[in-house]
Amino acid sequence: MSGRLLEGINLCCERDHRVLFESLNMGVDAGEVLQIEGPNGSGKTTLLRVLTGLSEATEGEVRWCGQPIRKVRTRYYQNMQYLGHAAGIKQALTAHENLRWHAALTGLEGDDQIDDALGKVGLRGYEDVPCYTLSAGQQRRVNLARLHLLPAKLWILDEPFTAIDKAGVSAIEALLIHQAQQGGAVILTTHQDLQHVPGLRKLTLK
């Protein structure tokens, strides 16, 4: 049993006869923030999707606490939150309804804390407005509210700063630091420089 929370071993990924990355060994421990960098099209999103188990790597294996994620899927997904490229919310529903559904997906009963979580991402007063009337940044914030609402050991975030304003960016940075201090781990892709995150590790894809 290795002590790494999440580990990718000898990962190789090929899309449309193009090798995105090969023999990639990476991982995060509890209390770490890992930033994945690289130019557009270098396979950052693909790597994140492989780590979540949404996509299969052409070769290699992803392990959660030393076990292949395929075998411990339920346990892994109980401890992991993934914020993808897409909004992850239904436009026709209100912010509150969207988060209630996310809470049900995680198996948590968070009805009381939903408004709190929305308040923390600066959406107080927008709880019961359909999401299609919100701006792109606000929709992004609805999705980010999940991080406040649903505790998870590991966060996998794909470009969490997209469409977020400056104050929002530093709030998210503070959130990442808090998560690491609590013994959680974060893997994220972003083109932003994270200056305030202590002990930030970087992984660069070519």
């Binding site: 188990g53 346990r75 993934y82």
Partner: peptide, 8 residues
């Protein structure tokens, strides 16, 4: 994808 990544 959130449905698939759910522990449910």
């Amino acid at each position: 994808e959130q449905m698939i990544l759910s522990p449910q």
